[in-house]
Amino acid sequence: MALFDDYQAILFRRRGRVLEVTLNRPEKLNATDAVLHAELARVFVDISNDPESDVVVLTGAGRAFSAGGDIGWMQEMIDRENGFDQTAREAKQIVFGLIDCEKPVIAKMNGHATGLGATIALFCDVIFAAEHAKIGDPHVSIGFVAGDGGAVIWPQLIGYARAKEYLLTGDMMTAHQAAQMGLINHAVPADELDARVDAFADKLVAGATQAIRWTKMSVNIGLRDLATSIMDASLAYEARSNDTPDHQEAVRAFAEKRAPVFGHARAGT
């Protein structure tokens, strides 16, 4: 496991040729801070180079898959000049790392997946979620543009009209709703989640490895083209929103445990 020895916020466990990867900030609902974000930017390259695995299961420690971005980290990006620049670079690396990883990546949504957490889950190849889990991309709820991949993947999975309904409101949906509209593959009882994911992972491990890998890469050609055409612009918009009064208000309101009051900027003013 030497390839993964220096990770601080991600755990790794082998089950035969299955590599189980766990986001490990349970006390923060696996929200990304600077350390976890940087590790996510390189982990899928390291996974691709791992000679001892053929299938990956990605999950979260504790009761959440990932609660998106850590609010304290967001304040740091506001306070630091050009603080979003590194985050934007890493965001692209996360998305393209998932797209370009030849090994099938199965998302095991053990709990809620929000914001970047939802993006990471949705860029996985097959998504299983516990029935109690919810998923959504509430970037706009904190005055942020959904620029780190949500604008790419949501319309491809559920169409533009539905995607815009959820991305423009930040509304969450249940695992059952997500499965019914095709956003995820399966919503299953929580006590069956591990067994269902293990059985699917074992099915892939028993298959023709190269055919499976190259089929994934063939399917992802169009997705990669879309990400290439969209990510720079969407991240540039997100970087701009990082400097807005509405985003600062949302971050401050979260810290003060109150609802944000938006409306600091209007079109044409």
Rank of each mutant, 00 (worst) to 15 (best):
G83K: 10
T87R: 12
G150A: 15
R89G: 11
I135K: 03
A161C: 00
A88H: 00
L157D: 01
N110E: 00
M77D: 00
I142R: 15
L122W: 05
W154G: 10
N82H: 12
H132Q: 13
V95C: 12
G136Y: 04
H132W: 01
N110D: 04
V152T: 15
C124L: 11
F84M: 05
A161W: 00
R162Q: 12
Q86I: 09
V105S: 11
D100Q: 13
P104G: 06
A88W: 01
H112K: 08
F128K: 10
A91N: 13
A129G: 05
I99Y: 08
F96L: 12
G117E: 06
G117L: 09
F123A: 05
A161D: 13
H112M: 12
I99Q: 10
I142F: 15
D100E: 15
G150H: 05
K108D: 14
F123S: 07
G149T: 01
V145I: 06
K103V: 12
E90A: 06
K92D: 09
T114Y: 10
C124Q: 07
I94E: 11
D79W: 02
K164W: 12
I158R: 04
K134M: 13
P138Q: 04
L116Q: 14
I120T: 11
G149C: 06
G150N: 07
A88Y: 00
V95D: 05
K108C: 14
D100Y: 09
A118H: 02
I78H: 15
E81Q: 07
F123T: 05
E81F: 03
L157P: 06
N110T: 14
I78Y: 08
A107H: 06
N110M: 01
K134T: 13
F96D: 03
A133I: 15
M109A: 02
A146N: 13
A130Q: 09
V152F: 06
T119V: 15
V95L: 12
E131A: 15
A161K: 11
H132E: 08
D100T: 01
A118T: 09
K164S: 14
H112T: 12
A107N: 03
D85S: 14
L98N: 05
E131L: 09
T119F: 00
V95R: 10
V126G: 04
I106Y: 06
T114W: 13
I78S: 07
K108M: 15
K108V: 03
E81C: 00
L122V: 08
R162V: 04
R89L: 14
G111P: 05
T87N: 12
K108A: 14
I135M: 02
A113I: 08
A118P: 02
D148V: 04
